[in-house]
């Protein structure tokens, strides 16, 4: 390779390394803001903001969904498999909302430590399969 080409190649390499490093540091600095939601453990450990709107993500605990009144109020527990947080929401839930499904709720903590949601979004998982396969997967652990 000709020397001036080698020099340009080196220059491009250095430029890419520089930009990569700059981006890494910038992303590290903004790490908190890039999190779309807090986990339920964050809330239990007091890492989530008090008296401010934030998003809370987790799995809807099986058997925890209840409708205490005749209105749209729904109460359920969210979990990340270590800590649980009770959520209250009044409104229409998305299609994919069901027990055992991941969701992201936006709202704030009230005095009782209950998360009052203003918006509930379903978080979809990365598994795709036909219903028959899902059924047989569900049956498998019961057979054991």
């Amino acid at each position: 390779m000709k020397p001036h080409r080698k020099q340009r190649l080196l220059l491009i390499g250095l430029m890419l390394i520089g930009i990569g490093l700059a981006a890494t540091f910038a992303l590290k600095a903004f790490n908190e803001n890039l999190m779309y939601f807090f986990s339920t453990t964050d809330v239990a450990e007091g890492k989530a903001p008090r008296d401010a709107l934030f998003r809370l993500g987790g799995m809807v605990v099986k058997g925890s969904v209840e409708r205490p009144g005749a209105d749209l109020l729904v109460r359920f527990k969210l979990s990340d498999f270590s800590k649980e947080v009770t959520v209250e929401y009044s409104g229409i839930l998305p299609d994919l909302f069901r027990e055992g499904q991941g969701i992201v709720a936006m709202g704030r903590l009230d005095g009782r430590g209950v998360f009052v949601a203003e918006e509930v979004l379903a978080k979809h998982d990365e598994n795709y399969m036909p219903p028959e396969v899902a059924d047989s997967l569900k049956k498998a652990p019961e057979a054991e």
Partner: peptide, 21 residues
Amino acid sequence: EWWNTLHQGPTVSKMDKPSIH
């Protein structure tokens, strides 16, 4: 993978077998 996002994780390019039928 780096952050909590509403968008789901990768399906096909996972190291173990893809989680799609």
